[in-house]
Design a protein around this nucleic acid. Structure first.
Lengths: 117, 117
DNA sequence: CAACATCATCGTACATCGCCGATGAACGAT
DNA sequence: ATCGTTCATCGGCGATGTACGATGATGTTG
């Protein structure tokens, strides 16, 4: 059932269109990163980390900036870490976070490509 | 209960840090857009739309590119529309979609700023 | 006008996400 | 060596998101 059209297959309404500008595999990876950015808290966290002095920020500075508990901030940082957007680095008592610039640039490039094309 | 610290408030571990690189209001708006991109299907949809000939694509080309039903594709397009990433335009029988370049550029800029800073 | 096609919306299961409290591991200080 | 602090992980509940089928609004065609 639901047989294919026999005729009127060509020029139904428009051009065929490549249908694979961004491959499915790449899309899954990129979407995971964008999804991590799809939360105001995480966006601000990444912004604070990336713009911090030396490109590093410790959790003791990040946590009090929000009305959220420690575990929740830790959870958001974990999401950013698993998305490859930040990297953790334990240095003594505190844990320091730094942004993954190349990954952020890759995401930016995706939007630029679509914009330019 | 849970009283504030009296001393050891200054220079606990590091610099104060601006804490407001991206304002909360702007973060909410941007996060909504990034959230819309946080799905492989939507990412490919936007990519197909933005790279289509003339910057426009009709649903009749978008739907068959996925193993999803029509209503589901329509739902994803609605998410992209509400995020301000695309605009719909009914032209006769078919509905055409085109990408919102300025909005995409704005998102790209956010990642660039964080990268440059 | 009537029949058809296209696309969006509505209502509904299933999965995932966001948040917290409690617990556990790592480290410095006494 | 023991204690206090810092931060991550675990377990749970409520809210949100994804997917489908069915239905409705809009526009074309016989």
């Amino acid at each position: 059932m639901s047989k294919q059209l026999t005729v009127l297959e060509s020029e139904v309404c428009c051009a065929p269109l490549a249908a694979a500008t961004v491959p499915a595999e790449a899309a899954a990876d990129l979407a995971a990163a964008f999804k991590a950015l799809g939360d105001p808290v995480r966006l601000q966290l990444l912004s604070m980390i990336a713009s911090a002095d030396g490109g590093e920020a410790c959790v003791c500075d990040l946590t009090p900036a929000f009305d959220l508990t420690g575990p929740t901030i830790s959870h958001h940082l974990k999401v950013l870490r698993e998305a490859g957007l930040v990297e953790s680095d334990r240095r003594g008592t505190w844990v320091w976070y730094r942004a993954n610039r190349s990954r952020m640039a890759a995401l930016s490039a995706v939007l630029d490509i679509a914009t330019t094309a």
